[in-house]
Design a protein around this nucleic acid. Structure first.
Length: 232
DNA sequence: GACCAGGCACATC
DNA sequence: GATGTGCATGGT
């Protein structure tokens, strides 16, 4: 099987599905529907997915606002803008030199055949194939690729991030050093292939992570504290 | 002032 | 294959 495109062929387990749905319901009743990246144009979501690499969303918003104010938040404008100007605009998101280059490389990919700058064309490409294509772009790793697939293209791909790993390993449901693909399969194997569910579930986990599951434990009032056996 | 945040590529062993 | 390192701003 090609690298990164496989889904381990584990049989779905009703028990784990039940655990997921119970966790999700609990988060949903605490945080309400997260409505993540709802009104944003898919292209903005893709830019945000790159800018948010290892960075708080607050800082990404500043960078995106700068791009918007400069009229640079379109594929054409963004590809025309100079590298130094782009660096200046996205500076608040951190790693600005790296990210400016990554955005430029991504734009080349996005504007060239077979996508030709069309979200519609991207959506038509089969999910696994699109994932492979995204992963072949320098600067796009698994989480960024999956964020684009799920939040920009509505593909049912579960996004795994640092919070996901921390939360589920602290709950004792997965090993602390579980790999990205393995953790993704932990969700995708046992849940229906439902982009809306994956979208909100992941957003709920980030909400939980932000408030109650930072590196330094913030467990007080965590809605999952009594769930399973949290190790903290 | 130290630590952390919605990663990734690359070097080294 | 696993582990370490550089990249950088802004909040706590």
């Amino acid at each position: 099987m090609p690298k990164n495109s496989s889904r381990p062929g584990k049989k779905p387990s009703h028990k784990s599905r039940k655990i997921h749905l119970e966790i999700y319901q609990r988060l949903l009743s605490r945080f309400g529907p997260r409505d993540w990246w709802p009104a944003q144009a898919p292209f903005e979501v893709m830019v945000g997915a790159i800018l948010t690499q290892n960075t708080s969303w607050r800082n990404v918003e500043r960078a995106i606002n700068n791009l918007r104010k400069a009229g640079a938040l379109s594929p054409k404008k963004l590809s025309e803008i100079g590298l130094e100007k782009l660096e200046e605009l996205i500076r608040p998101s951190g790693y600005f030199r790296q990210k400016a280059v990554r955005l430029k490389i991504f734009l080349e990919f996005y504007l060239a055949h077979p996508i030709s700058g069309s979200i519609k064309k991207m959506k038509k490409i089969e999910s696994g194939k699109m994932r492979e294509m995204l992963l072949s772009v320098k600067g796009i790793g698994p989480e960024t690729a999956d964020s684009i697939l799920l939040y920009a293209l509505d593909k049912p791909v579960f996004v795994v991030d640092a919070y996901t790993r921390r939360i589920f390993s602290r709950l004792g449901l997965v090993p602390e050093k579980i790999g990205y693909e393995e953790l993704r399969a932990f969700f995708e194997t046992d849940l229906p292939k439902d982009a809306a569910l994956y979208n909100d579930y992941h957003a709920q986990l980030v909400a939980l992570g932000n408030q109650y599951c930072k590196k330094r434990a913030l467990c007080k009032e965590c809605p999952l504290l009594d769930f399973g056996k949290c190790k903290i």
